[in-house]
Simulated assay, not measured.
Amino acid sequence: MRTIKQQHRAVNSPIADLVTYRALPTHSVEHLDPFLFLNHHGPQVYQPNNQGLPFGPHPHRGFETVTFILEGDIMHQDTGGHQSIIEAGGIQWMTAGSGLIHAEVSSPAFKRSGGPLEILQLWVNLPAQHKMTTPAYTGLQQMEIPTVALDEGRVQLHAVSGEWAGTAGGYQPLTDIHLATINLQAGAKLDLPIPAEHTVFFYTIRGKLRVNGQETEARYLTEFDFDGTALHIEALTDAVLLLGHALPFQEPIVAAGPFVMNTEQEIRQAYQDYQAGKFGRWQ
């Protein structure tokens, strides 16, 4: 089994009235190549006639955003012409690539009626060869994401990308990024093989788990060494897990605000291109 290098607690980082815990980066971990950033919004309950999510139009270049809607909804719009409203259980995958402007806000129905909200947004890096790829976006509702039942139904694995237990994920990204959300009932067990050379991304969203003999709980990111291929997971309570793995790119990472590139010059160019309107014009 892989050994655990360290556990990192998400830090409280509210955005306006939105409850937010940042799991990556924190003072104890900068990134887990190629996984760059994770914000955990909520859980919280919005009252009727609320303002909704605060993520108005803003640019990105050089990476991908994967947004998991556990409760509530997100209304997406971008300068590539994509629009959608994704509801609870659904996922958005946006490839910023060469650059676009997007907004992620709550739907008019959610702002009118309110309700529970819990959302995760993960940033996944793009290698140098894909950083200037054409932007793309796909939103999938819960029913469109393949689900695999394991351990006599006590484990529900939602295959987001890559392949899990012989099932292809709902997204087939540019790079070999494997992502899944996993719901486990108390007492459930799950054994998964992961290549030893891959980075493991293991974030406990809810509940308590034991992984490879060590306990972890909600809002903790578990970092592993590169010394084994087996993950053995036991649910100590009902739990929800975000699990990913990928081959590290091992390239320079230069991040500044909404851009992630390989050099400082590329970051300066990103700002110049954005200011020149090359990311599109917001309508």
Rank of each mutant, 00 (worst) to 15 (best):
V148M: 14
P48A: 09
G170H: 01
F37V: 14
Q172G: 14
A276G: 10
M94E: 06
E152R: 14
D17R: 01
G187V: 10
M75L: 14
L38S: 02
A230Q: 15
F279Q: 01
H102A: 09
V155K: 05
N262F: 03
E234C: 05
S113A: 15
A165V: 09
Y203E: 00
V211T: 09
W282T: 00
V260H: 02
Y171M: 07
L18Y: 01
M143L: 14
G72H: 03
V29F: 11
Q121E: 15
A246C: 11
L241A: 04
A235P: 01
E215T: 13
N212H: 08
H41F: 14
Q92I: 07
S84R: 01
E163F: 14
L209I: 02
D273W: 00
E223A: 15
L241G: 01
S161W: 11
S98M: 10
F279S: 03
V19R: 02
H245A: 10
T65G: 12
P135R: 07
S84H: 09
G81E: 11
H60Q: 06
T229S: 12
T67V: 12
E264Y: 07
F201W: 09
G97D: 09
T65N: 12
F202G: 00
L36C: 05
V155T: 02
S113I: 13
Q129P: 00
A235F: 06
E234V: 12
I194S: 03
L126A: 08
P248C: 09
V124G: 07
H58F: 08
V260A: 06
Q92F: 06
L53W: 01
Y220S: 02
M143Y: 15
L122G: 05
E215P: 06
Q47I: 04
L53N: 02
T216Y: 06
G89C: 08
D73P: 02
F55N: 00
I4A: 04
I253E: 07
H76N: 10
F224H: 06
V105G: 04
T263H: 04
I253Y: 10
A23F: 05
I86F: 06
G89P: 02
G213L: 15
L53M: 06
L36E: 07
T229M: 12
R2A: 06
F224P: 00
L70N: 09
P34K: 05
M75V: 05
F110Y: 13
L18P: 00
I4N: 01
N49L: 11
